[in-house]
Design a binder for these strands. Structure first.
Lengths: 206, 206
DNA sequence: TAGATTGTTAATCGATTAACAATC
DNA sequence: TAGATTGTTAATCGATTAACAATC
C-alpha cells in the first residue's frame, strides 16, 4: 500500500467516525459520497477518490455499501488489529487516559502503566497497578511492546523515551509538551495542544 | 490581517515553541531561517515567507532578531492578550486541564469549572471550586466569557454546547469525542485524538 | 571586501475541484 | 427507461521549493 498521505489518513478517520455515528441508531445500508461530503464539508469527488484509493467500489445510483466502507477503513487504518501499549507517567492526563475506554474500538490496549515516583508505585488506577519505571525496560522487552503513550512531565520525557526505544519501542504517542529526539525508524506522534490553542486564540482576537 | 491559513498558524506556533526552547537556557540574539528550517524540517524559504507575511524583516548575513520574532508571533497568535474561559466537565481530563499550568503562557486562563453531577459541586480541584452547570448560563453571561473548554462525556456535549452558545460563548475547545452542531459564527476546535491514533495505528501495521 | 543570508520572483509540485461519460 | 450516482480525466488552485539578485 503505497504512501498514504497524512491528510488522507485524517479524512479516512473522519469518514469512519461519521459512518459510526450514522449507523449507531438505525442500520443504514448505503451512503453516497454527496451525503458524506455534505456533513464533513469536503468535496464529493474527494470522498470518491479516497474510497477508490483504498479499493472501494461504489454503485451508480446507490452509493457505497456502508458496512463495506467501515470494514475497509478499519483494515486500512489498522483498527482490526490489536496493539498493546504501555503508558508512562500517571499524572492527571495519564490517569485520564487509563480511565478512557474509547481506545479499545480502535484496537489500542494499554497493558501497563509506569511512573518514576516510588510513592505512586503499587497504587491502583482504573484497574492498573502502577509499576516502577525501573522495571519498564524489562517489561517492554519481555512482552515485545512496540508502542508507548507518554504522559510525563517535560523534564523526564527525553530520558524515558531513550529507555523505551532501547527496549524496543518503535512508536511513541507523545502527550508531553516536549520535542523528542529519536533514532531513525522510530515514529513519534506529538500531540501539542498548542496547535489548537493557536487557532482558538487567533479566532478570539478582536 | 487577511485570512491567515490554518497551516501557517500551526507553523507559527512551531517556530515559537522552538525559539522558546532555544532561548530557554542561554539568550540567543539572532536566528537564521536555515537554523529554524533544519530543526523543524521545513524549507528555509517557507520560514522567511511566513515571517515576511507577519511583517518581520530579517537582516542579510545575520538572520532574524530572536526577541522580535517571538514578540511578533505572540501578537499575531494573540498570546499577549488574556482570554478567560470556563471549563465544563470535571472528569479525569477536565481535572488534568484544570491542573495544567502551561496555558497561562499562551494567554488562556480558566476562571471557573462546571459539572452537572450535583455530588461533585462544591468539591475543590486544583484550586477551583466546582460549580453546578445550572449556574453556568448566568455566570457566562455576567462575566462575558466567550470561550469554553468542553471536557464532558459524549452524551452531554451537545446540550451543554447549546446552553453555552445561548449564554454568549463564541468559541468552543471540544475535547469530548462528539461532533458538535453550532450556529454560524461560533468557532469549534475539535481535538479528536483519533487522528493521532490513525497515524500511529497505520504506522504500526505490519 | 567577501560571504552568508535575506526577500522575491518563477517553477514545480500536489491537492482540490469541475466536468462528464459510464453505470446501475 | 430515466435519473441519480459513480469513476476518471482535465482544469484549477494553492502551497512548496528553487533560483538568484539585493543586502548587510
Amino acid at each position: 500500500m503505497a504512501r498514504l498521505r497524512k491528510l488522507m489518513l485524517e479524512r479516512l478517520m473522519r469518514y469512519y467516525q461519521f459512518l459510526a455515528e450514522l449507523t449507531a441508531g438505525n442500520p443504514v445500508s448505503n451512503v453516497t459520497s454527496a451525503q458524506i461530503a455534505e456533513v464533513l464539508d469536503v468535496d464529493p469527488t474527494q470522498v470518491r477518490k479516497d474510497f477508490r484509493s483504498i479499493g472501494l467500489m461504489g454503485m451508480g445510483r446507490v452509493g457505497f455499501d456502508t458496512c463495506e466502507v467501515c470494514r475497509t477503513i478499519r483494515i486500512v487504518l489498522g483498527f482490526d488489529l490489536d496493539y498493546e501499549a504501555v503508558l508512562v507517567g500517571t499524572g492527571h492526563l495519564g490517569t485520564a487516559m487509563l480511565a478512557y475506554s474509547g481506545f479499545a474500538r480502535y484496537g489500542l490496549r494499554i497493558v501497563a502503566a509506569f511512573d518514576s515516583d516510588q510513592d505512586k508505585v503499587g497504587e491502583e488506577i482504573a484497574g492498573y497497578s502502577i509499576k516502577s519505571t525501573m522495571l519498564m525496560k524489562s517489561y517492554v522487552e519481555t512482552s515485545g511492546i512496540r508502542l508507548a503513550v507518554l504522559t510525563t512531565p517535560p523534564g523526564a520525557s527525553q530520558e524515558l523515551t531513550d529507555r523505551l526505544v532501547s527496549a524496543g519501542v518503535t512508536a511513541i504517542w507523545n502527550f508531553s509538551p516536549t520535542r523528542l529526539t529519536v533514532p531513525a525508524g522510530v515514529f513519534v506522534r506529538h500531540e501539542h495542544i498548542s496547535v489548537g490553542l493557536s487557532e482558538i486564540s487567533h479566532h478570539l482576537k478582536p
